[in-house]
Write a protein that binds this DNA or RNA. Structure first.
Lengths: 155, 155
DNA sequence: TATTGTTATACTCTATAACTATA
DNA sequence: TATAGTTATAGAGTATAACAATA
C-alpha cells in the first residue's frame, strides 16, 4: 500500500479538517436528514415539494426554470412537482408578462400558511445546538459563516 | 422579549443558536447535497444505493432488515435496492446461519472497490474547510463532536 | 435558431398490504 | 403467533428525447 494522497489538489488536509468534514457528513446524513423527513411527513410533503416551497418566497413569482435549477434537477421534473403542488392549492402558475414562454410559480395564501409552518418546524433549533454555551454558539456561527462565504472549487 | 440566554427546554433559543442551525441547514441543503449528487453520479449510483454501500463494511454481513433501518425506509424497498446492487455485482445475498429467515448482504470484491472509491470521493475535504486555520479546525471539530454526542430529543 | 414548458418513456424509490418460509 | 424477506400495487421523483409555442 503506497502512501498515495487522495487529494490531487496539491496538499493533504489536516487530520482535524478531515474529521470536521466527516462529522459534518455524519450530522447531515443522520440527524438532519431524520429531522427533515419527520417534518415534511407531518405536512405530507415530498422532499422536492418541500424544497420547492422553501424557495418560493411569498409575492415573488419564480420561473419554473429557476426552480429546476434550485432543485438541481431537470426542468421536465418541475412540471409534475408544480402540478401536484398546484392541485393541492399551494402554488399557482402564471404566465410571465415579459416573456410568454416563461411560466412562473407563486405561492397561494394557503401555500404561504403551509410554507410558514414548514419553515417554523425546520428552523426549530435542536437541543444539542441550543445547549451549547453562548461562546461556542458565537464561534460556531462565525466559522460556519466563513465556510459558506468561501467558494468551493469542487475540492 | 425576555433575556433568555439559557435553554429551559421551553425557552427561545438565542439568536446565535438560531443562526447556527440555519447555517447548518443551508450548508447541508446546498453545498453538501451538490457534492453528494455529483459524487454518486460519477459512480452511477442512486442515493439509496450509495447509502447502502456506505453502510456495508467489508467482511461484515448486514441483515437486510438492519439496512432498511439504516436507510430509514420500509423493509420492502431493500429488496429492490439489493437486487440492483447484486445485479451489478457489488453485493451478494447470504442466508444467515443462525436464522434461516434472515438474509444478509455482503460487499463483493468489486463492491469493495466501488465502495472505497465512493468513500474517497465523499471524504475529500472541501476547500472552505481545508483552508480554515488550525485553531478553527480544532474548535469546529470539538463542537461538532459534542453536538453529535448530545442526544436530540426531537427539539 | 434557441429557449421554455410539456409530454412520453423508462427506471428508481417509496409505503402499504398480502404472501412465504421460517421461528 | 410473530418475524424476515418477497411480491404486487400505486404514487412520486429522475433523466432523456421529442414537441409546441415563443423569442
Amino acid at each position: 500500500m503506497t502512501e498515495t494522497s487522495q487529494q490531487d489538489a496539491s496538499n493533504e488536509p489536516s487530520p482535524e479538517a478531515q474529521e470536521v468534514w466527516e462529522l459534518l457528513i455524519e450530522l447531515s446524513a443522520s440527524r438532519m436528514r431524520q429531522r427533515f423527513s419527520r417534518t415534511i411527513a407531518e405536512l405530507q410533503l415530498s422532499p422536492p415539494q418541500a424544497h420547492a416551497l422553501r424557495q418560493l418566497e411569498p409575492g415573488q413569482p419564480l420561473p419554473m426554470r429557476d426552480l429546476a435549477c434550485g432543485l438541481a434537477c431537470d426542468a421536465s421534473n418541475v412540471t409534475g412537482i408544480a402540478d401536484r403542488l398546484e392541485k393541492r392549492g399551494l402554488v399557482e402558475r402564471q404566465v410571465s408578462p415579459s416573456d410568454r414562454r416563461v411560466k412562473t410559480l407563486v405561492v397561494t395564501p394557503a401555500g404561504v400558511v403551509t410554507r410558514e409552518r414548514l419553515l417554523a418546524l425546520l428552523h426549530q433549533v435542536p437541543a444539542p445546538i441550543a445547549t451549547l454555551s453562548a461562546g461556542e454558539q458565537r464561534l460556531l456561527r462565525d466559522v460556519l459563516r466563513r465556510i459558506l462565504d468561501t467558494p468551493d472549487e469542487q475540492g
